[in-house]
Design a protein around this nucleic acid. Structure first.
Length: 829
RNA sequence: GCCUGGGUGGUGAAAUCGGCAAACACAGCAGACUUAAAAUCUGCCGGGCCAACGCCCUUGCGGGUUCGAGCCCCGCCCCAGGCACCA
C-alpha cells in the first residue's frame, strides 16, 4: 500500500470537518429564509440557553450544553421535523461591564470582539445553527424591543416605581447585589454595608404567583427545575388575623390630622398556624413597619428610634443570618389578641421582615422556634396551646413544640385536633370580622432598575408638568450613549445621570422639559424574551411577527443549565404570560419541554481560573476533532448529571469513530448476516429511545457495542450493516457522517437526504434466549432456549439439568415462578 | 431545618416494569499480526475459597416486604445542588 493511498483512506477529522463546515455554509444547509419560516410544515423549535460571550472565550461547559441540545435537534431533523436551531449572545450586564472596567476597554469595543471570537469557536464545534437568525442583546435593533416589552408591562400596570431596601456601600457610594456583600462588608473596599431605601422600577411578578405555580403541573420540565421554582414561589396557606391596637394604650392621637376622627387601627398578621392564636402572647412588627410610630409610647420612643437606626445600618445579608442572637425592643404599646381578648405587648425586631406577609407577626413562643428563642431572651410569657399524646395543658415546654396534637388553653376549642382547628379558628375569627383565610407567597416583585451603564436604558421620562411619562413606542430605541466615564463613582447614581446632554429631553406630552430615567434595566429582562425574537430576528418593524410566532412557538425543546432554574426561567414565563394577557401571543408557557443538563468538572473538581484547570476546548478540538470531542462529552456520563472531563477518556470515542470510518470505507456489498441484522435492529431501537430521553451516554455505548459486533474477529463489514450506523451516529459526529454519506454515494447533505433508520420489532430480538434457572432465587444454570417457550417447557428443561438437580436434591417443587423469555425460579424445600 | 438529586469494580459508568449486578469505555495485564512501532484483532480484569467442575460473598449502614431487592418500605450516615429568621 503506497503512502498516498493509505493517507486517502484514514480518518482525518481536521480536513473533513473544515470541508463540511464550509459546505454547510455555502449550501445553506442549516439556514432558513424568512419565507420558509412562514411556511414550514413540521416546525420544531430547538432552543438552548444563549451564552454570555466572556472574554475568556467558549468554555467546555458551553460546548457540553450546546452539543447535547444540537444532538437533539439533529435527531429531530433526521426524523423529518423542520428544525429551527438559533443562537445568540447575552452580552449586556454587570459581568461584562466589570470586565471592561478591569481591562480598561470600553464594552462597546470589547463585546463585538468577544462575539466574533465566540462565533468562530461555535462554528468549529459543528453546531446546526441558523446563522441568519441571531440575536445580540446589546444591539439597538434588539434592545429597542426589550424597551418595548418594558412599555407593554408598564401599560398593563405591571411596572411601578417604589422605594425598596438595597445594600449600599457608603464608601463606593453604590448599590451592591447580595453576592457582592462579603461578611457584611463591601467586596471591593471592605467598608461595612448599610441598608438603604432607593426608588426603583419593579415588575409585579407577584400578581402571577398563583399561575406561575399552577402551570408547573402542565409543562414537561426537569423535576429539579420545577421544584426549584416551587420553592422560590413559596406558597403558604394560612390566615390573616387582625389584632386591634389597644385604644387606651395608643400613645396619643396628637399625630392624627386635625378634624379627622382617628380610626381604630389594627395590626394585621399573616400566620400559617391560626390554630395557635390563643398562645399569641406578644406581637412583633418589622422595624420598618408603618404602624411603629403609632404604637410607640413616648417613654419608649428613644429606644425604638435607636433600634431602628441600628437595623438600618445593617446590610441585608447579615440581617438575614439565622444564627445570631435575637434582638428587639418593646414599643411600649399593646394590641388585643382577638381570641383571648387580652392585651399583648407589641415589640419590634429584625427577625420579622417587612417584605413577607404583612410585616408583622403574632408571636406564639410555645409553638414556634424563633418566637420561643425571642421570648426566652426577653422574658416574655410562653403558653402551651397544643398538647401531643401524653401531655396536657400544664405540661411545661422545654422548647417550641411544632408537632401535631390537641388544643389546650384555647377556650371553646380545647380538645380539638390542631389540624382541624386551623380552619375552625379562622372561621370563628372571620365571623367576628377579625380574620380571613389567606394564601401567601414568598415570591417578591422583580427589581428591574440597575444603577449601572451597560444595559438598555429604561424607556421612561419624568416631566415636571406631566409626571412619569413612558417614551412613545415610535421613539424607541432610547439609545445607550457611548460615554467614556461609565464607571460607577461617588455620585451613587447611574453613570448616565452624569450626562445632562443625554438625559435632558422634551416631554412628548406637553413639549416641556423632561428628564430621562437614568437607570438601565436588569440583564434578565434581555433574556426573558429572546426566544420570541429569533424567528423574527430580521424584522425591523416589530419585536416578532405574530404569524411566525404562532407557527414556531412555544419552544418545543429547551436545554440549559439549572443555575437558571429560578430567575431566567421564571422571568421568561412571567413575561410570556403578561404578553399573552395583552394579546400579543396566544400561549402562556414559553417552553413546552425543558431539560437541565449537568455540570462538567475537571479531574474531580470544579473548573476555575484559580485552580488553573479550565479547559480550553480549542486545543482539544484541534488535536482530536470536533466530532470526537462531541462524542466524548456525551459519553462521559449521564447528560442530565454532568461528568468529569479526563484527558485519558478521549481515546475511546476517537477509536470508535476511527473504526467506524475504516468499516465504512472498506465495507463490502453483500447480504447482511442475520445475527448482525438482529443486533442492528436492536441498536436502532435502543439509540432511538435513548436520544428521545437525552440518554446520550448509553446511546453511544450501544453504537460501540454494535460496531464491535460488526467487526468481531476482524471480519470485513457488509455495507448494509454500516450504512444505518452512519445515520445513527450523525447527530453526534455530523462531519464524519456527512463525509461517509457522500462516500456511500449520496450527493446531498445527510441531514437533507437521509431519514432516521427504522427498526423492525420482529427483527430486533434474537430467536434464542439465554434462559436463567434459579433455585430458591439463586442462579443455578443458564440454558439456551427458543424464544417463546411455555412455562411447562421451561420447567421440564430446568428439571432435566443435572446441575439444577443437584440443588433440588430430590425435594418437592413448592412453587414455580416463570418470567417469559427470561427466567424460571424453582422454589423447593 | 426544608426541598431536590446521588452513593455500584482501580476509574467514568450501565442495569426499561422487582428478574443473569458491573454493559460500554478508560487504565492495567497477556497474546496474535508486524523487522519494529502504530493501527487492528483476541483473551483476562470486584473479593474470597478450589488443582479443577464449581461454591460463597459483594451495589453507603441497619432492619423489613418478596420465590427473587442496586431498584420497593422503615430508620440512619455521607456527598452535591436549591431554599432558608418566609411567621
Amino acid at each position: 500500500m503506497s503512502e498516498s493511498t493509505q493517507a486517502a483512506d484514514s480518518y482525518k477529522p481536521g480536513e473533513i470537518e473544515e470541508k463540511w463546515q464550509q459546505r454547510w455554509d455555502e449550501r445553506g444547509t442549516n439556514r432558513w429564509t424568512d419565507e420558509e419560516l412562514r411556511t414550514a410544515e413540521k416546525p420544531f423549535y430547538n432552543l438552548m440557553m444563549f451564552p454570555y460571550p466572556s472574554a475568556e472565550g467558549l468554555h467546555v461547559g458551553n460546548i457540553y450544553a450546546f452539543t447535547g441540545a444540537d444532538i437533539f435537534g439533529r435527531f429531530k431533523r433526521l426524523q423529518g421535523h423542520d428544525v429551527f436551531e438559533p443562537i445568540g449572545f447575552d452580552a449586556f450586564g454587570i459581568h461584562s461591564e466589570n470586565f471592561a472596567l478591569k481591562q480598561g476597554i470600553h464594552p462597546m469595543e470589547l463585546i463585538p470582539r468577544n462575539v466574533a471570537r465566540f462565533t468562530k469557536q461555535l462554528r468549529r464545534v459543528g453546531l446546526m445553527y441558523d446563522w441568519s437568525h441571531t440575536v445580540d442583546t446589546t444591539d439597538p435593533s434588539y434592545y429597542r424591543w426589550t424597551q418595548w416589552i418594558f412599555l407593554q408591562l408598564y401599560k398593563a400596570g405591571l411596572a411601578e416605581k417604589k422605594a425598596a431596601p438595597v445594600n449600599w456601600c457608603p464608601s463606593c457610594n453604590t448599590v451592591l447585589a447580595n453576592e457582592q456583600v462579603i461578611g457584611g462588608a463591601c467586596e471591593r473596599c471592605g467598608t461595612p454595608v448599610e441598608m438603604r431605601f432607593l426608588s426603583q422600577w419593579f415588575f409585579k411578578i407577584t400578581k402571577y404567583a398563583h399561575r406561575l405555580l399552577e402551570n408547573l403541573k402542565t409543562i414537561d420540565w426537569s423535576e429539579t427545575t420545577k421544584k426549584a421554582q416551587e420553592n422560590w414561589i413559596g406558597r403558604s396557606e394560612g390566615a390573616e388575623l387582625e389584632f386591634p391596637i389597644a385604644r387606651n394604650k395608643v400613645a396619643d392621637d396628637r399625630h392624627a390630622p386635625a378634624g379627622i376622627e382617628p380610626e381604630r387601627p389594627t395590626i394585621r398578621v399573616f400566620t400559617t398556624r391560626p390554630d395557635t392564636v390563643f398562645g399569641a402572647t406578644y406581637m412583633v412588627l418589622a422595624p420598618e413597619h408603618p404602624l411603629v410610630e403609632r404604637v410607640t409610647t413616648d417613654a419608649q420612643r428613644g429606644a425604638v428610634e435607636e433600634y431602628r437606626r441600628r437595623v438600618a445600618a445593617t446590610d441585608l445579608v447579615t440581617r438575614r443570618k439565622t444564627d445570631k442572637t435575637k434582638t428587639g425592643v418593646w414599643t411600649g404599646g399593646h394590641a388585643v389578641n382577638p381570641a383571648t381578648g387580652q392585651d399583648v405587648p407589641v415589640w419590634i425586631a429584625d427577625y420579622v421582615l417587612m417584605e413577607y406577609g404583612t410585616g408583622a407577626i403574632m408571636a406564639v413562643p410555645g409553638h414556634d422556634e424563633r418566637d420561643f428563642e425571642f421570648a426566652t431572651e426577653f422574658g416574655l410569657p410562653i403558653v402551651r396551646v397544643v398538647a401531643p399524646e401524653g401531655a396536657d395543658a400544664d405540661t411545661p415546654l422545654e422548647q417550641a413544640y411544632v408537632g401535631p396534637g390537641r388544643l389546650v388553653n384555647s377556650g371553646r376549642f380545647d380538645g380539638m385536633d390542631a389540624d382541624d382547628a386551623v380552619r375552625a379558628v379562622t372561621e370563628w375569627l372571620a365571623g367576628m370580622g377579625l380574620g380571613k383565610a389567606r394564601v401567601n407567597y414568598r415570591l417578591h416583585d422583580w427589581t428591574i432598575s440597575r444603577q449601572r451603564y451597560w444595559g438598555p436604558p429604561i424607556p421612561m421620562l419624568y416631566c415636571d408638568a406631566c409626571g412619569t411619562v413612558p417614551v412613545p413606542e415610535d421613539q424607541l430605541p432610547v439609545l445607550l450613549p457611548e460615554i467614556a466615564d461609565y464607571k460607577p463613582d461617588a455620585s451613587g447614581i447611574s453613570p448616565l445621570a452624569r450626562h445632562e446632554e443625554w438625559y435632558i429631553t422634551t416631554c412628548p406630552q406637553c413639549g416641556g422639559k423632561a428628564r430621562r430615567e437614568t437607570d438601565v434595566s436588569d440583564t434578565f429582562l434581555d433574556s426573558a424574551w429572546y426566544f420570541l425574537r429569533y424567528p423574527s430576528a430580521n424584522d425591523a418593524e416589530r419585536p416578532f411577527d405574530p404569524e411566525v410566532a404562532r407557527r414556531w412557538l412555544p419552544v418545543d425543546s429547551y436545554i440549559g443549565g439549572n443555575e437558571h432554574a429560578v430567575l431566567h426561567l421564571l422571568y421568561s414565563r412571567f413575561v410570556t404570560m403578561a404578553l399573552r394577557d395583552m394579546g400579543h401571543v396566544d400561549f402562556e408557557e414559553p417552553f413546552t419541554r425543558f431539560r437541565a443538563h449537568g455540570l462538567i468538572i475537571k479531574d474531580g473538581s470544579k473548573m476555575s481560573k484559580s485552580r488553573g484547570n479550565v479547559i480550553v476546548p480549542d486545543d482539544y478540538i484541534a488535536q482530536w476533532g470536533a466530532d470526537t470531542i462531541r462524542t466524548y462529552l456525551m459519553f462521559l456520563g449521564p447528560y442530565q448529571e454532568g461528568g468529569d472531563f479526563r484527558d485519558s477518556g478521549i481515546s475511546g470515542p476517537f477509536s470508535f469513530l476511527s473504526r467506524l470510518w475504516d468499516s465504512a470505507v472498506n465495507a463490502e456489498e453483500r447480504a447482511i448476516d442475520p445475527a448482525v441484522e438482529q443486533k442492528l435492529h436492536a441498536t436502532i431501537r435502543k439509540v432511538t429511545e435513548d436520544l428521545e430521553a437525552l440518554s446520550y451516554n448509553t446511546a453511544v455505548a450501544a453504537m460501540m457495542e454494535y460496531l464491535n459486533t460488526v467487526r468481531a474477529g476482524g471480519r470485513v463489514p457488509e455495507r448494509a450493516a454500516v450504512e444505518p450506523l452512519v445515520r445513527l451516529v450523525a447527530p453526534f459526529a455530523p462531519h464524519l457522517a456527512e463525509e461517509l454519506w457522500e462516500r456511500l454515494g449520496h450527493a446531498e447533505s445527510l441531514f437533507d437526504s437521509a431519514r432516521w433508520p427504522e427498526f423492525d420489532p420482529a427483527k430486533a430480538v434474537a430467536d434464542t434466549v439465554e434462559f436463567v434457572v434459579q433455585v430458591n432465587g439463586k442462579v443455578r444454570a443458564r440454558l439456551p432456549m427458543r424464544r417463546g417457550i411455555t412455562e411447562a417447557e421451561a420447567r421440564d428443561a430446568a428439571l432435566a439439568d443435572p446441575h439444577v438437580q443437584g440443588f433440588i436434591d430430590g425435594k418437592p417443587v413448592r412453587k414455580l415462578v416463570f418470567v417469559p423469555d427470561r427466567l424460571v425460579n424453582l422454589v423447593v424445600g
